[in-house]
Nucleic acid binder design. Structure first.
Length: 490
RNA sequence: CGGGGUGUAGCGUAGCCCGGUAUCGCGCCACAUUUGGGAUGUGGAGGUCGUAGGUUCGAAUCCUGCCACCCCGACCA
């Protein structure tokens, strides 16, 4: 491990790249645009999965698994859907390789697939094609399914976690008897995502709906949660879609309602991906490394012994063992780093880089005084604490850290929502301050497009429960009934 | 996919213009001394110079293709 990290102020994007690799979260693979998620990074993802999965189950959903491959013909059944994804699909055309005689392995042209297969960029089509066979009556509804899977979107420009050609995610796909029920489902899952972001990731989010321009390909309404990173750029952290009857019609999924009439079902889909890892990293971390919220930290407490001889080492080990037992009983994950190959200072730096929320150092002085040194990652504060009741204090401290990093992120976010009333101010705020810019917009795609081309800012969302306020569009001066949130985004 | 840049030991690099088998730092291994914020000394190991061709007596160096990464655009979660 090399010393130091590029500072956020010097080069934010280099800071991010170095942090991801140096903290052992992920690295580039031999395959273009695809990353290897390393054990430490994956264990954070697993904690996210576990929390989300429980939330999905608690809201009545079940997991299932659908194929990686989608027949090309399925894909073209929903017009706007295919248009949205066509440009980034990986396609399987053959099913066999052969030796060309010169010891080169080549594609066997005789093994051409009759129908080409698309590697799923999302699974609506294969799932709705399947649902046709599962749904006959209103009694089969609602159908509430989630799948954890990998998907492929052939991106030209990739960044670890934020945008990779292959990524991991979950996609929920539900079917309902009425439009209203489907809308409620989409809104419910948006709440689940917001709850997860705020209470687990400690990342405050704005809940909103997307403009037609930014909507998911094939959706009637796209709900989203938008987070803000420390460089003032927005990051879409999760989406939930009301799909209307588009996919039901495309795949002919009908049910008999209570009145005995045949109708197409109403659909939703919703997803979050390993992109959340990027959000987590960029929302809290500092120039010394990762800062992880305790609820998602693979290691919540690390204990570093400081000793001068075998006798001290033994005594510290005994204290650590007792403490570990107490902490584990409270469900706190703890690691005792008794490596003799690294000095304490090195370990301190290493665990800071990896974002371990609480570090405990126990040395000779602590043996004398019955204390331990507690250092918290979020504020870098160190304090000498009596070992009496230490486990309880650490339990509280973890909660406090979780709350503190949320508050910090919330404060930053709130300080970076700026209301402007002229296009001039709009551009100035984007360039000088960044963050969300709250402004009036005439509601047209043309104006939205023009702003995007001229400033690189997009409408992140129209916040839910947005206060109505009469005003004039900052570009065209046309009347507007509410402000919307703009930002440059990841 | 367009423009620009980079690729030399695990990591960061010098050498490339002007061709002669590779420099330095960190890390790694061994031993010793160390241990309350990234230890020190001594000794040692580690290289198809991204990759495939070409030019040449000889290529890290010159030429061509390909691959990957970084930055900027278009696209996107």
């Amino acid at each position: 491990m090399s010393k130091g990290l590029t500072s956020r102020a010097d080069d934010y994007s280099q800071w991010y790249n170095e942090l991801v690799t140096k903290a052992d979260l992920a690295e580039h693979s031999a395959v273009r645009g695809c990353m290897v998620i390393k054990p430490y990074g994956y264990s954070i993802w697993e904690k996210m999965q576990a929390a989300l999965d429980k939330m999905f189950k608690d809201t009545g959903h079940s997991n299932a698994y659908f194929p990686l491959f989608i027949p090309k013909s399925f894909f073209s059944k929903e017009a706007s859907h295919v248009e949205g994804f066509a440009k980034e699909c990986a396609v399987v055309t053959h099913y066999r390789l052969k030796n060309d005689g010169n010891n080169n392995i080549v594609v066997d042209e005789d093994a051409k697939l009759e129908e080409e297969l698309i590697v799923r960029p999302t699974s609506e089509t294969i799932i709705w094609n399947t649902y046709r066979g599962w749904i006959e009556s209103y009694r089969d509804l609602p159908l509430l399914i989630n799948q954890w899977a990998n998907v492929v979107r052939w991106e030209m420009r990739t960044r670890l976690f934020l945008r990779t050609a292959e990524f991991l995610w979950q996609e929920g796909h539900t079917a309902h008897a009425t439009s209203q029920e489907a809308v409620e489902e989409a809104e419910r899952m948006l709440e689940v995502y917001a709850d997860f972001a705020q209470n687990w990731m400690a990342v405050p989010v704005v809940k909103g709906i997307k403009t037609p321009n930014e909507r998911f390909a094939g959706a009637l309404e796209t709900y989203c949660i938008e987070a803000m990173m420390q460089d003032g750029k927005a990051l879409q952290a999760g989406t939930s879609h009301f799909l209307g009857q588009n996919f039901a019609k495309a795949f002919d999924v009908k049910f008999t309602n209570k009145e005995g009439k045949l109708d197409h079902v109403w659909a939703t889909s919703w997803g979050v991906s390993t992109r959340l890892m990027g959000a987590l990293i960029m929302a809290h971390s500092d120039d010394a490394g990762l800062v992880l919220p305790p609820k998602l930290a693979p290691i919540q407490v690390v204990i570093v012994p400081i000793y001068k001889n075998a006798e001290e080492f033994k005594q510290i080990g005994d204290i650590a063992d007792a403490l570990i037992a107490e902490l584990k009983a409270k469900g706190i994950s703890v690691k005792y780093d008794d490596r003799d190959t690294q000095r304490p200072g090195f370990k301190f730096a290493e665990y800071e880089l990896k974002g371990v929320p609480v570090r405990l150092a126990i040395g000779g002085r602590d043996l004398q005084n019955g204390t331990a040194e507690v250092a918290r990652r979020d504020t870098k504060e160190k304090m000498s604490v009596s070992r009496e009741g230490l486990a309880d204090r650490l339990e509280n401290l973890l909660d406090e850290i979780q709350q503190n990093i949320y508050n910090k992120a919330l404060q930053y976010r709130d300080e970076h929502i700026t209301a402007v009333d002229s296009y001039e101010d709009f551009k100035r705020v984007l360039d000088e301050k960044a963050g969300f810019v709250s402004a009036h917009w005439d509601g047209t795609a043309e104006t939205e497009q023009r702003i995007k081309e001229e400033t690189k800012a997009t409408i992140r969302c129209i916040p839910l429960n947005n206060p109505k306020e009469d005003g004039a569009c900052i570009v065209t001066g046309k009347p507007s009934a509410q402000r919307v949130l703009f930002a440059r985004a990841y």
